[in-house]
Design a protein around this nucleic acid. Sequence first.
DNA 1: TATCGATCGGCACGGTGCGTGCCGATGCTG
DNA 2: CAGCATCGGCACGCACCGTGCCGATCGATA
Lengths: 202, 202
Amino acid sequence: MSDTPATPRRRGAARTEELLRVTLDLAAEAGYAGLSIEAVGRRAGVGKHTIYRRWPSKAALLLDALSHVWTRDLDYRDTGDVRRDLREQFLRSGFALSSPPIGPIYRAVIAEAQADSVLRATLHERFLATVEQSTLDRITRAQHTGELTADANLEFAAEVLCGTLYYRSLLSTRPIDEAAIDGLLDMFMAAYGTTDQGLSGH
Amino acid sequence: MSDTPATPRRRGAARTEELLRVTLDLAAEAGYAGLSIEAVGRRAGVGKHTIYRRWPSKAALLLDALSHVWTRDLDYRDTGDVRRDLREQFLRSGFALSSPPIGPIYRAVIAEAQADSVLRATLHERFLATVEQSTLDRITRAQHTGELTADANLEFAAEVLCGTLYYRSLLSTRPIDEAAIDGLLDMFMAAYGTTDQGLSGH
DNA sequence: TATCGATCGGCACGGTGCGTGCCGATGCTG
DNA sequence: CAGCATCGGCACGCACCGTGCCGATCGATA
């Protein structure tokens, strides 16, 4: 006990790291409701100034906390089977979006973003567009290998794929289950797949 | 002038109607930021109690204000050409979702809903699912007339169509323009249309 | 017409959170 | 050891939510 004094009073980068961790913990335990600057400060034993010295606003802190856990697992695998790779990734993303800590933080950022168009642009650029881009990369590769038709406009397709997932997890109340993902992929493959046996259940 | 005294102090249904109108006015003028109960009360010259006697929460008022202007123009036309009817309706909805007063109110409701799962369910039921349903009705008719393939799972298709629009207008920062709608309809028709000349630009 | 109760506007309150100032204490750096 | 940036703690002003209380006003009922 005496080896680790109660509050070693870390500073600099160590404090930054700890604050992000506390934010994630709060999101996991208290959910959306626990995500206030004051709550983070209280739990971390930290003055609000220490937080505002690092992030200009509550939204900035949340965005950083989000990217702290959301940047990994963003890349699609490439097994040579687009549908399989998309399905696997959508299942992973869908679960992450629906679970703490990512779910509550995403919701908090979205709530903040409704009142702030600059934040909305940042959210879109750092997360939504990034996810769309990696989706676009994967299906573009599939187009080159002939799995998808050559004349398909894949930019819109990537937006439709990602947008539907975000719609379901953040605006709708339905869960992102396998049926939803298969239904979405059915439509995508029926539209742009080159093999005709695209339906999942057939 | 003297015929209409400054404040006739209306009550009952008349006040209710007026409060909804003031809410819509505020949304049109001040946008999301102006949508607080206190602001509505101030502008209407009304005590907050008069508002809370009618709606149990801020979210309830906003939902009512939304349905006050959003229930019309929800139905698709049926010209016999699905793609044309969907396109027309998506253009209308997209514009409405992006403009005051509907845009700001929708944003406010969404922001509130992130913290309240009951409200999220209500929002989904009264608006999102309703729009999906009328879309489903229209494309189901098209399936019966042979414009769409018989084995298409149209429930997911309706969700994808509506979800993409909501994603773009409420989470993304891109406008709902004709290119986006045509791209979305390209994918939908390529997947489930029965005529092969489905691409818009061809 | 007189009465009475429901509704009204106005005001104040407690609670919460945001973002900012100020203070004296603490810990790193030179 | 000296100096200084960072720290925790506290308080403030502001805004809003939802509630309680008051006396005024309106309208239905007697």
